[in-house]
């Protein structure tokens, strides 16, 4: 019979990574298993760190809007709320972000003492150059979206999808997805996809959920759910 010391010496002589035999006892297996678990957890922790922290940072580039626009101040100055600048044309199409012409209705000359306003007037208004605004709410080109169907016919509030942007005093950083090229606002700030407000994300699931609640064309022959062609023409 060999002593315990001998056993441990024998175990130590085993080539690393080989499977311990049954008669060699449980103690060395515990040590190896611990190591395996340790590596597993290191891997797990590292990948979770990468997946949750590093990846979102890498995925989005940070861009500044060309002009720091003050919505709150403009809303106070105009009579008709959001629709003063973001209005429907007579044919029912929506203007979206106003073109320079609309801005020029007031800003042909500098109106106030804001540095951003005078920058706007000098760099864009006087040169007749459109401001290359970055559009947070821009959907991929394969999506057909009609504002009039939602705002006029569906009686939805602007904030339901756009949040309280009308109260903002500064433009947010525009985070652009490096792969798809669209804004982070579409997926939502929360990388896990959970949302607290209706406007937190605007993915297809968000559209579909609302369409289901409102009973918009839940008539797809294939899926029995919302009809694809409502949005994908």
């Amino acid at each position: 019979m060999s002593t315990a010391d001998e056993k441990s010496r024998k175990a130590a002589a085993q080539p690393s990574g080989s499977i311990p035999t049954a008669e060699e006892g449980p103690a060395p297996a515990d040590t190896a298993g611990g190591k395996v678990m340790a590596f597993f957890f290191i891997g797990l922790a590292a990948s979770l760190f990468v997946g949750w922290i590093v990846f979102p940072k890498l995925l989005y580039s940070q861009k500044k809007q060309p002009i720091d626009f003050n919505h709150a101040m403009h809303v106070q100055e105009v009579d008709n709320g959001c629709e003063s600048c973001h209005f429907f044309r007579p044919d029912g199409t929506f203007t979206g972000i106003p073109k320079l012409d609309k801005c020029l209705e007031c800003h042909e000359e500098v109106q106030g003492d804001s540095a951003e306003e005078s920058r706007f007037v000098n760099q864009y208004a006087q040169k007749g150059k459109e401001v290359p605004w970055l559009v947070y709410a821009k959907q991929p080109a394969c999506v057909f979206f009609s504002h009039v169907a939602h705002v006029r016919m569906g009686k939805m509030d602007c904030a339901a999808c756009h949040g309280n942007i009308g109260e903002s005093q500064h433009t947010r950083v525009y985070e652009q997805n490096r792969i798809s090229g669209y804004s982070r606002d579409i997926w939502g700030r929360n990388i896990s996809g959970f949302k607290r407000h209706t406007w937190d994300s605007m993915k297809m699931a968000d559209c579909a959920a609302c369409h289901k609640r409102a009973g918009v064309h839940q008539t797809s022959v294939q899926t029995g759910k919302g009809a694809c062609f409502v949005c994908h023409k």
Partner: peptide
């Protein structure tokens, strides 16, 4: 083990 841990972690991220 690191790989498996990484895979599980990635799947959970």
């Amino acid at each position: 083990a690191f790989g498996i841990g990484g895979a599980v972690g990635t799947a959970l991220s």
